[in-house]
Design a protein around this nucleic acid. Structure first.
Length: 320
DNA sequence: CGGGTTTGACCCGCGC
DNA sequence: GCGCGGGTCAAACCCG
């Protein structure tokens, strides 16, 4: 019975996100996981389902997950992040912290309390992370901030999500030929981290894991602007190098994708969904709305991708 | 020269 | 206690 409610909540969340992203719901490129942040819980991370996202739309998902426009019930406690409060009170997103809708695990009942605990310790944790080498309290288990993981089929390792990231490490991953990269938000007051790695099972899949909450607005685009931007604004100007890449506005960003990805992105749309995430999915939710390839939905997606993507890019790659 | 990346070393938690 | 693996640091390097 509770299970059913969970399913409904997830379905609703999924619908909300899908609707707001104005994307067709027939293709599945990305799987989103939510992790409440408790230690060792990532194995039990919640699959929010597969999303039809373009590589460059990852930002939108992340953004949407933080937007108050999501059903209130997903935002059980719009807690003010202590991190955010300590900063200049910028446009603080509701944050994944508050989306404690993960509930498949038994810990869900205590979510509220857990989240608060996490946040209390975050403050200490921030100091710790900055001075990792300094002695810390030993018996204090390190608790992670809530995390979201996106599995995206793409050729580009580091998806541009609108924020600026600085790479601070790279490690070989056991049982995987691909290294894992560690990024930190370049904003000094922001402690959000991001890990990027390729799936060892399918090298075309990039797993991007966000940890923490941005305490500042997205430096690239204002909330909600995505997908509304007229094509001319996106591709019109030969804006030129966005120096440093991610700090740029939409133009270089999209060009970046055109250059680096060319077809892969659409190729992935045309690719039969052979991806198997079952090992990570403890939810059956994705079965409901997953993998219903109908190329028409993309093409005749009125006012959707066309708004963001030039028509030539929408052509079936096979036609070229 | 400033900001980002690379990379080897180090720390820490965990399992045996 | 030890070894392993994940995560982070920070010096060196690179690049615009």
């Amino acid at each position: 019975m509770e299970k059913k409610q969970e399913e409904e909540l997830r379905t609703e969340l999924y619908s909300t996100i899908s609707d707001q992203m104005m994307i067709p719901t027939t293709f599945s490129m990305t799987n989103i996981f939510y992790d409440s942040g408790m230690p060792c819980e990532f194995d039990q991370k919640e699959s929010l389902g597969f999303f039809d996202v373009q590589d460059f739309a990852t930002q939108s998902i992340f953004d949407l997950l933080q937007t108050p426009s999501l059903p209130a019930k997903f935002m059980q406690q719009p807690l003010p992040s202590p991190v955010a409060e300590s900063s200049e009170g910028v446009n603080t997103p509701v944050t994944p912290n508050s989306s404690s809708f993960s509930s498949s695990s038994n810990e869900a009942d205590n979510d509220d309390r857990q989240i608060k605990t996490i946040e209390e310790e975050e403050e200490q944790d921030q100091d710790k992370t900055k001075k990792q080498l300094k002695p810390k309290k030993k018996n204090q288990k390190r608790q992670r901030e809530p995390r979201f993981a996106f599995m995206t089929k793409t050729e580009v390792d580091n998806l541009d999500d609108g924020y600026r990231w600085r790479k601070y490490g790279q490690k070989a991953v056991k049982n995987s030929p691909f290294p894992r990269s560690y990024y930190r938000c370049t904003n000094a007051s922001c402690v959000v981290k991001k890990r990027v790695e390729r799936s060892c099972e399918d090298s075309s899949i990039v797993v991007t894991t966000y940890e923490g909450t941005h305490t500042h607005p997205c430096p690239i685009m204002p909330r909600g602007s995505f997908g509304v931007m007229p094509e001319t604004a996106i591709f019109g100007g030969g804006g030129g190098g966005g120096g440093g890449g991610t700090s740029s506005f939409m133009v270089p960003k999209m060009q970046h994708y055109r250059q680096q990805q060319q077809q892969p992105y659409f190729h992935s749309l045309m690719t039969p969904p052979s991806m198997n995430f079952s090992t990570n999915c403890n939810s059956s939710f994705h079965q409901e709305r997953t993998f219903r390839p109908s190329s028409s939905s993309l093409v005749r997606d009125d006012g959707l991708l066309q708004d963001m993507v030039p028509s030539q890019m929408l052509k079936d790659p096979k036609e070229e």
